[in-house]
Structure formats: structure tokens, C-alpha cells
Design a protein around this nucleic acid. Structure first.
Length: 221
DNA sequence: GACCAGGCACATC
DNA sequence: GATGTGCATGGT
């Protein structure tokens, strides 16, 4: 019989898709907007990110050229609603500088690399960690690289599919060997996990009616 | 007023 | 290699 963890991962996907339908992530009009959003959403509610992106749009700064030219202080002020604004302004700047130095300020050029080349390249940028890199790969560059976030780790823990200290790479590997290597599937699955976690698994909330059959007594830790 | 939200870098042990 | 801390806003 097949590895049970992998079977469970596949069953989750089927059940979530049945319960919620396709999510159609990511909320962003352009790949550039998606990348900027990926930085801004770090440890931050998406609503706050939308305000910050709105400010950038109004200021006509949502292009790699404009982001390269803008003063970092002004950038920080515009993205203030997203929190950690000084840190994130620096991170956006480091990303923009890197993109211009190596890819002529073109996401499309970066997108010519395959996942195994693009991922380590992104990870070298200060301010881009595993989740942000994978979000950019999947949601901006359409490349299969499963996104793991706090929600995903919580799901795995609550179903006994990983230890409390399971790291990012272990979880990523589990999803990637369980599912077909298809960016559309990776896109949809991560979005579905965020959806179910928000609705049924607020940190200490009950999980009545959860498609993944979570129970309050599983929520320890 | 505490807790949370689609992390990451850095210091310290 | 694990663990702790700073970064900061806005919603519940």
C-alpha cells in the first residue's frame, strides 16, 4: 500500500477542492504586483498589504523602474500600512537592485530559469526566505515549487503528519512527492490550505465542520 | 488590551 | 542546529 502520509495529502486536496472549489489565487493584477505583495505580506494580514499596494499604485510606483528610482524613505512611508515598513522597504529595494543587476529589471528574464535555478537565486536576495521565494515562483512566475506557511505546518501537526519542529523543507518535500508536479495544483492547494485554516483553525478556535476533520483536542501546542 | 496576521535576518547558546 | 528577538500596522 502507498505511504499513508502521501495518501492523506492527496485526500486533503480532494476534500478541500470539493468543499471550497478553486480559489483562483493570487490577488494581484500583474506579476510585478504579486512579487511586491509577496514581500509586503510577510507576517502581515493581507488587508493591510492591499492598502500598501494601493498607495504604490496611486504613486505609480508599481514598476521595476519606478521602484528602482524611488527614495527608500518615501517607499517606506507608502507601504506603512503593511507593517514592518522600514524593513520591507529595504527588502523591496534589495530585490529591485538584484533584479536590475542580474535580469535587466525583467521578471520575464528571471522566469526563463527553471525552478531549480530560480529558487536558489531568489533565496540569495536579502529579505527573501523560503516562503517568499516559493510564493514568487508559483504565483508570479508560474513555476512548480510548493509553498509552505505557518498554516500548512499547523495542518500537518494537527494530523500527526509532522513533528512540532518539522522544518520547511520536510513539509515541502512531502507535498511535492505526494502531488503531481503541476504549478496549477501547487497554486490551488496552498490557497485552499489558507482558506480552510482561516475559516476553521484560528489558533485556539474550535474546528466544527472543518473539511479536514480537525478537532479541538488536536490543537495542543 | 491581548492576540493575530500568507516571515526573515541576526545574535546567542 | 535550535531558540529567541526585533521589526510595526490594523482587525478582532
Amino acid at each position: 500500500m502507498a505511504n499513508s502520509a502521501e495518501t492523506t495529502i492527496r485526500r486533503f486536496y480532494r476534500d478541500l477542492l470539493r468543499a471550497y472549489g478553486p480559489q483562483g489565487w493570487w490577488p494581484g493584477d500583474t506579476p510585478t504586483e504579486v512579487v511586491v505583495g509577496a514581500i509586503l505580506t510577510q507576517n502581515t494580514n493581507w488587508r493591510n498589504v492591499e492598502r500598501a499596494i494601493g498607495n504604490l499604485k496611486s504613486a505609480r510606483l508599481l514598476s521595476w523602474r519606478a521602484l528602482r528610482e524611488v527614495d527608500v524613505q518615501r517607499l517606506a512611508e507608502l507601504i506603512r500600512p503593511a507593517g514592518y515598513f522600514n524593513v520591507k522597504a529595504q527588502r523591496l529595494k534589495s530585490l529591485v537592485t538584484w533584479l536590475w543587476e542580474h535580469y535587466g529589471g525583467s521578471l520575464a528574464m528571471l522566469g526563463r530559469l527553471d525552478t531549480t535555478a530560480a529558487r536558489p537565486a531568489l533565496l540569495k536576495v536579502r529579505g527573501i526566505g523560503p516562503e517568499t521565494a516559493d510564493s514568487i515562483l508559483v504565483y508570479a512566475l508560474n513555476k512548480p515549487s510548493f509553498v509552505i506557511d505557518a498554516y500548512t505546518l499547523r495542518v500537518l501537526r494537527r494530523h500527526g503528519l509532522s513533528s512540532a519542529k518539522s522544518n520547511y523543507i520536510e513539509a515541502k518535500s512531502l507535498f511535492e512527492r505526494s502531488m503531481p508536479q503541476d504549478v496549477r495544483v501547487y497554486n490551488e492547494y496552498h490557497a485552499l490550505i489558507v482558506r480552510v485554516a482561516k475559516e476553521h483553525c484560528k489558533a485556539r478556535a474550535r474546528c466544527a465542520g472543518c473539511p479536514l476533520a480537525w478537532h479541538p483536542h488536536d490543537a495542543a501546542r
